[in-house]
C-alpha cells in the first residue's frame, strides 16, 4: 500500500475556469452577479423589476440555470434583455464551465455587457460551492420561507456579499421577523449588505438598483 499527499482543491477544475471568466469580465468591465436562493423566492421576478429600471441605462444580460424548461430565460427576454437558458441535465447547480460554454456560444450578443445576472439553479446549498467568476454572490430569502434560514444555511449566507429579503409586501400575513434575520446575517457576514424589497409593489427596489450602479462604478474605477 502506498500513500501520497495530494493537497489539491477538490473543485480545481471549476476554479480554473472561474478565474478565466473573471479575467474576461475584468477586461470587459462587466459586473457579474451570481444569484442563489431556494426555488420560488423571486429571483426572476426581482430581475424583471431590475431590468425595467436599469435597461435604459445599461447593457444587461442574463444566464438562467435550471434543470428543465426555458421559462426563466423567456421571462428575461420578454423583459427586454438577451438571456440564455443553461439546462444542467439534472445537476442542482451551475458550474463555471457551463457558464463559459454558454458565453462562447452566444458570442457578440453577450460581449461587452455592463451587468451580467447569473440566476443559479434554485437551491440554497450546492450552488454555494461553485465559483462562476462572479464579482459577488447575492442570496435571496423570501419572507414566506421563514426567518430561521440564515443559521440553517450558514454557507450561502456567509458567502453572499448581499442578501435580499424579498416579498416584503407579504410581511403582514406571515411570521417573519426581519430583525432576527438581520441579526443572524450580521453574525455570518458582518460586512454584508441587506436589502428588503418587494418586486411586486416596487418598495425597496431603488436601493437595490442604486447598489448595483455603485458596484458597477466601483469595479470600473478600480480597473
Amino acid at each position: 500500500m502506498t500513500q501520497v499527499d495530494v493537497k489539491k482543491k477538490i473543485l480545481e477544475g471549476n476554479l480554473a475556469a472561474a478565474a478565466q471568466l473573471r479575467a474576461g469580465f475584468r477586461a470587459s468591465g462587466t459586473l457579474v452577479i451570481n444569484m442563489i436562493s431556494s426555488p420560488g423566492s423571486g429571483k426572476t421576478t426581482l430581475l424583471e423589476g431590475t431590468i425595467a429600471r436599469l435597461k435604459a441605462l445599461y447593457r444587461l444580460g442574463g444566464l438562467d440555470g435550471d434543470i428543465a424548461t426555458e421559462r426563466d430565460a423567456e421571462r428575461l427576454r420578454k423583459a427586454g434583455i438577451p438571456a440564455r437558458q443553461i439546462l444542467t441535465g439534472g445537476a442542482c447547480h451551475l458550474d463555471s464551465r457551463q457558464v463559459m460554454s454558454a458565453l462562447d456560444d452566444e458570442g457578440e450578443r453577450f460581449a461587452g455587457l455592463d451587468i451580467l445576472f447569473i440566476e443559479n439553479v434554485g437551491n440554497l446549498i450546492c450552488p454555494t460551492s461553485y465559483d462562476l467568476g462572479e464579482d459577488y454572490k447575492v442570496a435571496l430569502l423570501s419572507v414566506t420561507e421563514g426567518d430561521d434560514k440564515p443559521f440553517k444555511y450558514p454557507a450561502i449566507f456567509s458567502k453572499a456579499a448581499v442578501t435580499v429579503i424579498t416579498k416584503t409586501d407579504l410581511l403582514p400575513y406571515v411570521d417573519f421577523d426581519v430583525a432576527t434575520v438581520r441579526s443572524e446575517l450580521s453574525t455570518l457576514r458582518p460586512d454584508g449588505a441587506v436589502f428588503e424589497l418587494s418586486s411586486r409593489s416596487g418598495t425597496g427596489m431603488d436601493a437595490w438598483c442604486d447598489d448595483l450602479t455603485r458596484r458597477l462604478a466601483g469595479k470600473r474605477s478600480a480597473a
Partner: peptide
C-alpha cells in the same frame, strides 16, 4: 476547506 489531502492505493 474542500481539499483532497491524501490518496492511498495498492501497488
Amino acid at each position: 476547506d474542500l481539499d483532497v489531502l491524501h490518496v492511498e492505493f495498492e501497488e
